[in-house]
């Protein structure tokens, strides 16, 4: 029963990811995509957590943290790119 609920939850997350994917493909603007991807990342975090419960292993918990970090760095980089056109600035005191 618990397993079934977890699988159901996982399926929901997948659907959510699918929908977000639609948004990230369609856009229409770059920020839309960035947000959608960020959210996808967050959803994958949740999904991994659920899989960990199902497999009853703690081996994937690092992945959760890393994914969080990457989603963050990715979003920052993306927004910087949208905002300024570069990701790493050569120089600047802004």
């Amino acid at each position: 029963m618990k397993e079934t609920i977890l699988l159901l939850a996982l399926t929901f997350f997948m659907i959510a990811i699918g929908l977000l994917l639609y948004r990230s493909i369609v856009g229409p603007t770059m920020p839309d995509r960035a947000i959608a991807l960020d959210t996808i990342g967050v959803n994958i975090i949740s999904a991994i957590a659920i899989v960990s419960i199902i497999l009853s292993t703690t081996a994937f918990l690092e992945a959760i943290l890393i994914l969080g970090i990457l989603a963050f760095i990715g979003t920052i980089a993306f927004s910087k790119y949208i905002e300024r056109g570069v990701i790493v600035e050569r120089k600047g005191d802004s």
Binding site: I5, T11, F12, A16, L19, N43, I53
Partner: peptide, 18 residues
């Protein structure tokens, strides 16, 4: 487990919002 289910539902809603 239920909080996980809740989370998935919220996530679905947020995706619909997107």
């Amino acid at each position: 487990v239920l909080s996980v289910l809740l989370a998935s539902i919220i996530s679905m809603i947020s995706a619909f919002g997107m």
